Amino acid sequence: MRDTTKHGGRRGSRRTTYGLAAATGALALAVSACAPGVDAAGAGDGTGGTAKMTVSYSQLVADQLPLWIAVDSGLFKKQGLDVSLTSLSGSDGFPALISGQTQMASIGASEMISGAASGAQVNYLATLTPVFPYQFYTKARTAAELRGKRVGITTSSGSVYVATLAALKQLGLTPKDVRLVSLGSVTNVNNALIAGSVDAALSHPPASTQIEAAGYHSILDLAKQHIPTSNVGLATTTAYAKSHKGQIKKFMTALSQAIAREKSDEKYAEGELSKHLKISDPKALKETWEYFAKEVLPARPTPTTAQLQTSKDALAKTPGVSRLDLTEIVDDSYFPPAN
């Protein structure tokens, strides 16, 4: 989402809302072009015939593997769903969702919190990444050596930003101790680190293979800290959730089956990673599967308020964030806690 911290009070909130509304018109053609033939309004409740859904994802990362598996292995189709995936940045994906151009968005908690603070009525339905799936890479030997150094992030409000704040805290540092450099995307952050344009950054497999080859090492594995978050989760509008409960239940059934296959079928999962991430290095593929399937991905993607609270705390100065009631945003009815 766009950084709204520079606007104040009610005026800032209005500007954010107007900005979201203005963006939706331009997105209409873009989303339609990405998913030809998809009925933007959805096809009923999924109880009569095939129901069409367009789902956006904000980053081309391994967190999205359950969605790719569910589409490519036909799990959604078995549930009577025609699901199209389309790639939209976090700042574009949220306006597309609230305008009805997409029916669901795979986004981070920070984008969710920022959008809800601007007045959007949305629900968080599932969490694919309930921990920060990052390692902190640098050539520095100690955290103290990072003072004054350049640390790459995507944006000043995205999931990588929130995770970087958490990493710095774990290392005994604050954002004022380093120079945060916004680079726009995860790919840009990885490339900048390898090129030496920044001195440190968060990353994960498969990019970590190249990063380590460039002489960097990890001084912190955030995933092992088990800090509650939702680095990637699934959101929809409150209106869509109320009118399409059956359709969403079928979607989540297929998603659960995809998660189970990712965890149990290494060969197939690595094939999907190779296809979508355009990588062929067997070492990188295996490291990526092991990291996400064994360390990051939950068996049950149940969303919790604690996962959103981390981003709410990090974005506390953004207008409207402090007033959010997370219990009204999180809908855990599709994945009740296991007995």
Rank of each mutant, 00 (worst) to 15 (best):
Q170I: 01
L255G: 10
S110M: 07
P130I: 06
A96S: 11
T305G: 03
R147L: 04
A163M: 05
T17D: 13
S230H: 04
H276I: 06
E272Y: 02
L97Y: 03
I259F: 06
V122T: 15
L168T: 06
H226Y: 10
T327P: 00
Y18H: 07
A126L: 06
A28S: 15
A207V: 02
V38R: 14
A338G: 04
K249S: 15
K263Q: 15
L308V: 11
S89G: 14
L285D: 05
F335L: 10
T236R: 01
S89F: 10
G46Y: 15
I259P: 09
T174D: 06
S91D: 11
T17F: 12
L128K: 02
L202W: 08
G49F: 08
K169T: 13
G158Y: 01
V131G: 01
M252Q: 12
T238M: 08
P228A: 10
Y18Q: 12
N231E: 04
S182T: 09
T305S: 05
G42S: 07
Y57T: 02
I279R: 05
P206H: 06
S156F: 15
T127M: 06
S114W: 02
T4S: 07
L222W: 01
T238F: 11
A51D: 02
G9K: 14
A293H: 11
T5R: 15
Y57Q: 03
L183M: 08
F335D: 12
S243Q: 13
F76G: 05
A126K: 06
P205W: 01
A30I: 14
L180K: 08
L171I: 03
A223C: 09
F76C: 04
L97W: 09
T237A: 03
V296A: 03
K77Q: 14
Y137V: 03
V131Y: 00
E262Y: 07
A105V: 14
K139H: 05
I227W: 05
P282R: 11
E111D: 15
Q121L: 12
T5M: 12
A241T: 07
V186G: 02
I279N: 02
A140E: 09
T164E: 01
L29W: 12
H217V: 00
S106E: 07
Q210M: 07
S73Y: 12
Y137D: 02
T154F: 01
D325L: 06
L65A: 12
D82I: 04
